[in-house]
Computed example of a mutant assay.
Amino acid sequence: MVQKLGTLIILLGIAVQGFGQDYVNAKQRDLMMKMDEGVALMNQGNYASADSYFQQVLTAIEVVPAELCFYFGKNSYHLKKYKQSIDWLNKYIEIKGTTGQFFDQAREYLALSETDYLAEKVEPTRQPRREAQTKLQRIDCNATPFVLCPVCKGSGVLIEQGALGSAIYRTCPYSDGSGRMTCEDYQKYANGNLVISP
C-alpha cells in the first residue's frame, strides 16, 4: 500500500512537471506569435501597432530573442524614437555579431538612427521623447554562448589617451583575444555587475 502510494505520488509529480513545461512552451509560442504579428504590422507600415505588440512581448518574455532586439530597434526608428532604436540595434549586434541574419539591416538602421538622433539633439524646439526601457532582461546563453564585447566593440583592444597625447593600447580585460565576451559576463555587464579581478 505504501509502495503504491509512493509510486502514485511520483507519477503525479511527473505529470505536474510535464504540465508546467507544456505551459511554459505554450506561453513562449504565444509570445513568438505575437512578435510575428508585430513584424507583419511593421512591414505594413503600421509602426504604432507593431510597437504595442513588441512592448507586450518584451514585458512578458523571460529570454529576449536577438531578433526581437532588431525588430524593436528598426520599428523604433520609424517611430522617430532614435535613441531607443540605437540602443536596441546595438543590443542585436552585440548578441549576434557580424554573422547575424539582420546584421546589414541593423547597421543601416543604426547609421540612420544615429544621424537623426544627432540632428534632433541640435534642434532645440523638439520635446524629448519618453523611451521604452532598454534593459535586456536575459538572453539565451545556450543559443548564444558569446557576444561581441560592448566595451572594446569587438576589437579586443582598448585605446586610452596618454599624458602627452599619445595613444596607449591595452588588451581588453572584458573580452577574449578575439573581441568576444561570454554570454554570462555580458549578462553581468548589462546589469552593471561585471567585476574584473586585478
Rank of each mutant, 00 (worst) to 15 (best):
Lys4Phe: 14
Lys4Ser: 15
Lys4Ala: 15
Leu5Arg: 14
Leu8Arg: 10
Ile9Val: 13
Ile9Trp: 06
Ile10Gly: 05
Leu11Thr: 04
Leu12Tyr: 09
Gly13Gln: 02
Ile14Met: 11
Gln17Glu: 07
Gln17Val: 10
Gln17Ser: 12
Gly18Gln: 07
Phe19Trp: 14
Gly20Ala: 12
Gln21Phe: 15
Gln21Ser: 10
Asp22Gly: 07
Tyr23His: 02
Val24Ala: 05
Asn25Gln: 07
Ala26Ser: 08
Gln28Thr: 09
Gln28Pro: 01
Gln28Met: 10
Asp30Ser: 05
Leu31Pro: 01
Leu31Cys: 01
Met35Arg: 09
Met35Ser: 05
Asp36Thr: 02
Val39Arg: 08
Ala40Arg: 06
Asn43Trp: 08
Gln44Pro: 05
Gln44Glu: 14
Asn46Ala: 10
Asp51Cys: 11
Ser52His: 13
Tyr53Cys: 13
Phe54Trp: 06
Gln55Phe: 05
Gln56Gly: 04
Ile61Lys: 05
Ile61Gln: 07
Glu62Leu: 07
Glu62Lys: 08
Val64Pro: 00
Pro65Val: 08
Pro65Met: 10
Ala66Trp: 09
Cys69Thr: 04
Cys69Arg: 05
Cys69Leu: 08
Tyr71His: 11
Gly73Arg: 04
Gly73Pro: 06
Leu79Arg: 13
Lys80Phe: 01
Tyr82Asp: 02
Lys83Ala: 11
Gln84Leu: 04
Gln84His: 05
Ile86Met: 04
Ile86Thr: 04
Asp87Gly: 04
Asp87Ser: 05
Leu89Ser: 11
Leu89Trp: 02
Asn90Cys: 11
Lys91His: 12
Lys91Asp: 07
Tyr92Leu: 03
Glu94Pro: 02
Thr99Met: 14
Phe102Asp: 06
Asp104Leu: 14
Ala106Gln: 11
Glu108Cys: 10
Ser113Glu: 00
Glu114Asp: 08
Ala119Val: 06
Val122Met: 10
Glu123Val: 03
Thr125Met: 10
Pro128Asn: 04
Pro128Tyr: 00
Arg129Tyr: 10
Arg129Gly: 01
Arg130Gly: 02
Glu131Pro: 00
Glu131Thr: 01
Ala132Asn: 00
Ala132Gly: 01
Gln133Asp: 05
Gln133Gly: 01
Gln133Ser: 02
Arg138Lys: 10
Arg138Tyr: 03
Ile139Leu: 02
Cys141Glu: 02
Asn142Ser: 11
Ala143Val: 10
Pro145Gly: 12
Phe146Cys: 14
Leu148Met: 12
Leu148Ser: 12
Cys149Glu: 08
Cys152Arg: 09
Cys152Gln: 07
Lys153Pro: 03
Val157Leu: 05
Val157Cys: 02
Val157Glu: 06
Ile159Tyr: 10
Gly162Cys: 09
Gly165Trp: 14
Gly165Pro: 10
Ser166Met: 12
Ser166Lys: 12
Ser166Leu: 12
Ala167Glu: 14
Ala167Cys: 08
Tyr169His: 09
Thr171Asp: 12
Thr171Tyr: 08
Thr171His: 08
Ser175Gly: 04
Asp176Asn: 13
Gly179Arg: 07
Gly179Cys: 04
Arg180Lys: 15
Met181Gln: 07
Thr182Trp: 11
Cys183Pro: 12
Asp185Thr: 12
Asp185Ala: 15
Asp185Cys: 13
Tyr186Leu: 03
Gln187Thr: 04
Lys188Asp: 15
Lys188Glu: 14
Lys188Thr: 08
Tyr189Arg: 07
Asn193Arg: 10
Leu194Ile: 06
Val195Cys: 06
Val195Trp: 13
Ile196Trp: 13
Ser197Gly: 15
Ser197Cys: 13
Pro198Leu: 15
